[in-house]
Design a protein around this nucleic acid. Sequence first.
RNA 1: CGGAGUGUAGCGCAGUUUGGUUAGCGCACCUGGUUUGGGACCAGGGGGUCGGGGGUUCGAGUCCCUCCACUCCGACCA
Length: 568
Amino acid sequence: MRWSRYYIPTLKEDPADAEVISHKLLVRAGMIRKLTSGIYTYLPLGLRSLQKISQIIREEMERFGAIEILMPGVQPAELWQESGRWNAYGKELLRFKDRHNRDYCLGPTHEEVITDLVRGEIKSYRQLPLNLYQIQMKFRDEIRPRFGLMRGREFLMKDGYSFDKDEEGAVRSYQNMYKAYQSIFKRLGLNYRAVEADTGQIGGNFSHEFMVLADTGEDTIVVCEQCDYAVNVEKAEVKVGSFSGERACPALKKVITPARHTVKEVAEYLNVDETKIVKTLLYNVDGRGVAVLIRGDRELNEIKLKNKLRAGEVRLASKAEVEQWSGPVGFSGPVGLKLEEIYADLELANDTDYVVGANEKDCHFMHCDLTRDTKISAFYDLRNITETDPCPKCGGKIKLTKGIEVGHIFKLGTKYSEAMQAFFLDEQGRERPLVMGCYGIGVSRVLAACIEQNHDQYGIIFPLPIAPFECLLIALNVKDSEVRSRSEVLYEQLKSQGVDVLFDDRDERPGFKFKDADLIGVPFQVIVGAKTLAKGKVEIKIRKTGEKLEVPFEQCRTIIQELKNKIN
RNA sequence: CGGAGUGUAGCGCAGUUUGGUUAGCGCACCUGGUUUGGGACCAGGGGGUCGGGGGUUCGAGUCCCUCCACUCCGACCA
């Protein structure tokens, strides 16, 4: 491809509305343009990268037995009503009506459509297992799209679905896809970790997320430094030792704590450690009031709470609810609370003599023993893990790090097949629901995550497999006839030996071309200039290392080939 | 949805507080010339519903009302 005839609108300055580096660089390098909030056009370079990512995904999916199809983006409401998600999915599902006033939505995911497809065709265990996937634009009406391609409303996704005759087969399919994902992300050249994750509203039994490690990630993951344990914080189990000490606690005593609301204020005022204070958080769980107790210096994990209570909706109580169940906001406590359900974090069972709120303005209780003075419904693991906690698996040291979720695999079970009556006949002629799994990769998010992980002050540093071009051939001064003709020769040579080459044949000054070259991040630059050419040489610059090699003109093509092979 | 901010040429911005000639700067673009190894220089030129609508005023980019879009924080979501 000749740059002079191509479409790469690069920018000198950062776009004003971009915050994170991948967003800035994608726009500056002429890879994307925003149409409206969370919705982007992919320009030639951006599209090429997406196609390279997609192709790797295709190859690995097919290698692991999946078959590509393409489903519609527009889906009828009936299917979603059948699965129960028309109501459950919420506002993220973009709904609209056609001219006949029938309800439709733009597909945010395709469990309904695929289940509908398969239930009409798959009638026998002999047709199983089956694994279908597609690469397609999804639409999710995010409340707050942000960070460019990282959290868009319209985005390119690979979604795959497996169907098995039994649990055992479904586990095999899941493990098969786990391996496929490992090899996909490895081939893409990303620094990633597979972590255990919560299943969220898609539901099912267990799941893994594939996280690209980057500071700008929206997820926090826990990684053990000693063993292979890796998990999303939302799911990280906290191991607490059992209580061994003497349980001595003086009698409960009410104290005045004027206008001290926060744990920090109360701790300072009463001169006790934050670990001796119990926070009482009031929640509205599916419409009923629930109190949750947690140590003063800890954070509650709402997902753990939601899962433990098998709840649908969990939200902090409103001011009015707090006043109804407890008293003035800031002084809630488990003693004398007008609520049936009080849950406490496991860690609290290990100590006594706590400070708690008294459900009364400007009052707290000291010397509270939770088993003596309160009615705790149950002790559960409810808090977020911290770096001082031991690894739940091996007891070793753990580290918290940020990650960008680029892939997610779920074992769905029979949730959709039962709701939508996707049955088949087994070996004994019995009717059974298909056992499903689903597997997603955010293709456009992979591109953003890749740039978050691979850039410097000058621009993008693409790993070879994702780079829009493998090699950028720069003719330094196209008005110099020797430079012009020699670079034309090189261009033809590189093309003919299968190198994906972009030829910068523009009539621009060298500095201008160098800046653009570094910005778009093509892995290898071949620089043809009058000075080196006079020595019969050309220059090869490796974008990643900044290393420059002067090589004889005739050897350039083979050296590029060697560099390519070395990385692949 | 709550809070904060922004909207002036393709991009990045000044001007708005205190209303007053023809709305400005840098980059980009067009023409001519010089230049050519890290975002050149000189000269000339084109491009504006100042986010939309309404109002106040002799006069509005500037003041008032209203609507819209975009960004950030939060809530939400996975």
